[in-house]
Amino acid sequence: MKFKDVTAERSTVLFVLKNQNSENKIVKIFSNASTKIIYKSNGRDEHVSLSNIKRGVKKREIDYAIKKILKTHPESTQITLKPNGIVYISKNI
């Protein structure tokens, strides 16, 4: 499984995310079919949000986000599953 960096293609979403929280220094957007990953970093913390409008987010997608995007191990993260199916993963730097 591989996610493609689509940040450059999503300039409107990127603009909203960066202006929503001025602390966000880095924002990247990744896509793999209908699953989207939004990565945000403010220099102190890193966060990813995973969502899929067609189905629930799969464990292997969560593992990918932790290992390939956050570049850490599950033990070093805090994972929160929201009722709407969005998965939030946080890592302190």
Rank of each mutant, 00 (worst) to 15 (best):
residue 93 I to E: 12
residue 31 S to M: 13
residue 84 N to F: 08
residue 81 L to W: 01
residue 61 E to C: 06
residue 42 N to M: 04
residue 63 D to M: 13
residue 88 Y to A: 14
residue 75 E to H: 10
residue 40 K to C: 05
residue 16 V to N: 11
residue 24 N to M: 04
residue 44 R to K: 14
residue 15 F to D: 14
residue 67 K to G: 01
residue 41 S to G: 14
residue 93 I to T: 08
residue 78 Q to A: 08
residue 20 Q to G: 15
residue 37 I to W: 00
residue 77 T to W: 01
residue 54 K to W: 10
residue 82 K to T: 08
residue 13 V to R: 03
residue 50 L to T: 05
residue 41 S to P: 07
residue 11 S to K: 12
residue 14 L to F: 08
residue 33 A to K: 11
residue 55 R to M: 11
residue 68 K to Q: 15
residue 76 S to P: 00
residue 35 T to S: 04
residue 23 E to N: 14
residue 45 D to G: 09
residue 16 V to K: 08
residue 28 K to H: 07
residue 7 T to D: 06
residue 64 Y to R: 01
residue 62 I to W: 02
residue 85 G to Q: 12
residue 44 R to A: 13
residue 12 T to I: 10
residue 41 S to D: 12
residue 3 F to M: 05
residue 44 R to E: 14
residue 48 V to L: 04
residue 2 K to F: 14
residue 58 K to M: 04
residue 63 D to H: 09
residue 32 N to E: 11
residue 79 I to F: 02
residue 60 R to D: 14
residue 23 E to V: 02
residue 56 G to K: 14
residue 84 N to M: 06
residue 46 E to C: 12
residue 52 N to F: 03
residue 2 K to G: 07
residue 37 I to D: 06
residue 4 K to H: 09
residue 83 P to W: 10
residue 33 A to M: 10
residue 61 E to W: 09
residue 85 G to V: 08
residue 24 N to V: 07
residue 76 S to R: 13
residue 82 K to E: 14
residue 64 Y to L: 03
residue 68 K to M: 13
residue 11 S to R: 09
residue 59 K to I: 03
residue 50 L to Q: 04
residue 65 A to H: 01
residue 12 T to R: 02
residue 74 P to Q: 13
residue 9 E to D: 13
residue 84 N to V: 03
residue 16 V to M: 08
residue 10 R to G: 01
residue 81 L to R: 15
residue 18 K to H: 10
residue 3 F to D: 10
residue 66 I to M: 04
residue 12 T to K: 03
residue 93 I to K: 14
residue 18 K to F: 10
residue 19 N to G: 09
residue 4 K to G: 00
residue 75 E to C: 09
residue 44 R to V: 09
residue 39 Y to Q: 05
residue 39 Y to N: 04
residue 53 I to P: 12
residue 19 N to T: 09
residue 26 I to F: 00
residue 16 V to Q: 10
residue 88 Y to V: 07
residue 38 I to K: 02
residue 35 T to I: 07
residue 29 I to A: 03
residue 45 D to E: 13
residue 32 N to Q: 12
residue 74 P to D: 13
residue 69 I to E: 03
residue 1 M to D: 12
residue 10 R to V: 01
residue 26 I to A: 08
residue 62 I to C: 03
residue 2 K to S: 14
residue 63 D to I: 08
residue 9 E to K: 11
residue 57 V to E: 01
residue 53 I to Q: 10
residue 74 P to F: 00
residue 75 E to G: 06
residue 59 K to T: 06
residue 72 T to D: 02
residue 46 E to M: 12
residue 40 K to S: 07
residue 72 T to I: 05
residue 26 I to T: 15
residue 11 S to D: 11
residue 59 K to R: 12
residue 7 T to C: 05
residue 20 Q to N: 15
residue 77 T to R: 02
residue 92 N to M: 07
residue 64 Y to V: 01
residue 7 T to N: 04
residue 3 F to Q: 05
residue 72 T to Y: 00
residue 46 E to A: 13
residue 59 K to A: 07
